[in-house]
């Protein structure tokens, strides 16, 4: 379970520390406040515990800076500078918190020259399953992508290849437990079918037949991906699910199902990180969470005087401040009043 991230002069962040809920973490903020960067740093740290790769390599492939020069991830300054990020996780089996840190300078050209410190050996002795769902759907583009990615140097952030790998993991042996079966049924009802894979191609299978993913609405593909990840056991107790903007291409009505599933996954012990720009995501969580649910809303915003990214966290929807999503609606309220009441009251 990821407990905390600290970022110093790394990408958009000058100096930021955020503590996370062991359940659901929802990150909001305007464009350019580093939401996706935070997700990617968390994901890289999770992934190396299992893949046994170097953290610097993983970060470089996940962020994909120009020319793959890892030093470009240091926050841009006019002078030479160094940056780092540190991720802390709690390992229940040894009841201990461990931290790993990646440090680099803006002159660091190769990942091998970056410094990885902290409890890296212990970190890798306790593998952590994680999955990162990127904004763009990859399910329809799966055929051939994995072999192409492994054979050729194509310019794709590694999260796209990783998600296809996770989706192609074989099913767990035996019947799914009752919790997973219930979630799979909810998703099957919403997308009217099950997902099957044939020769690296995904299909939605129902009474009408098999429909290839390229012919499916992108929103349904997202539900399909969730179905696959639950069905193949990727999303189990102890997994970290990271989802960048789940609302993309999803009809707001389907968001109710997605949030229902996410809350249920949290009950099953999955730790969730997601970013959103969408009111219906926030409101669905506000309406569906119950007492006892573990949820934190994290708002990333730029300090008006320093211009630096800061964060505030709240355990309930109304406590989010600033709330960049609701502020947009507030702007509509202001313009409507200005339009119809002019200077009255001003």
């Amino acid at each position: 379970m990821i407990e905390q991230i600290k970022l110093e002069r790394f990408t958009a962040f000058e100096n930021l520390s955020v503590s996370f809920s062991p359940g659901i973490n929802i990150i909001i903020g305007e464009n350019g406040t580093g939401k996706t960067h935070m997700l990617k740093a968390i994901y890289a740290a999770c992934d190396v515990s299992k893949s046994q790769k170097s953290l610097a390599d993983k970060v470089n492939r996940v962020f994909l800076p120009s020319g793959e020069q890892i030093g470009r991830l240091v926050k841009r300054k006019k002078v030479s500078t160094t940056g780092n990020f540190e991720v802390t996780r709690k390992i229940p089996s040894i009841n201990k918190s461990l931290a790993i840190r990646l440090s680099l300078s803006n002159h660091t050209k190769e990942p091998a020259k970056a410094t990885v410190s902290g409890a890296y050996k212990q970190w890798q002795e306790h593998p952590l399953e994680s999955v990162y769902i990127p904004v763009k759907d990859m399910m329809a583009n799966a055929p051939g992508f994995r072999s192409l990615y492994s054979l050729r140097h194509i310019h794709f952030e590694e999260v796209y290849a990783d998600i296809i790998d996770r989706a192609f993991l074989g099913s767990l042996k035996g019947q799914a437990d009752a919790d997973r079966r219930k979630l799979l049924e909810i998703l099957q009802k919403s997308m009217d079918g099950k997902v099957i894979a044939k020769n690296e191609e995904f299909f939605l299978k129902n009474k009408q037949g098999e429909l290839e993913f390229t012919l499916l609405a992108e929103g349904i593909r997202k539900l399909g991906l969730l179905w696959v990840l639950i069905q193949n056991g990727t999303l189990l107790n102890g997994t970290v699910l990271i989802w960048d903007e789940p609302e993309t291409n999803l009809n707001p009505k389907l968001m109710r199902t997605v949030v229902e599933i996410l809350i249920a996954l949290q009950h099953m012990g999955v730790q969730i990180f997601l970013t959103t720009h969408d009111y219906s995501v926030l409101k669905e969580f506000d309406l569906q969470i119950s007492q006892g649910d573990k949820i934190l809303f994290h708002s990333l915003y730029r300090n008006k005087s320093t211009g630096e990214v800061e964060a505030s966290s709240a355990d309930n929807y109304l406590g989010i401040s600033p709330n960049s999503i609701d502020d947009t609606y507030g702007g509509f309220v202001d313009r409507e009043i200005e339009k119809s009441m002019g200077k009255l009251g001003k």
Binding site: G330, D334, M341, L344, K346
Partner: peptide, 19 residues
């Protein structure tokens, strides 16, 4: 009715500083 507005206290104070 000339216009109708539904707002919360924060928005009221932003829009109607004289009230």
């Amino acid at each position: 009715a000339n216009s109708c507005h539904v707002l919360n206290v924060d928005r009221w104070n932003i829009n109607f500083p004289k009230w």
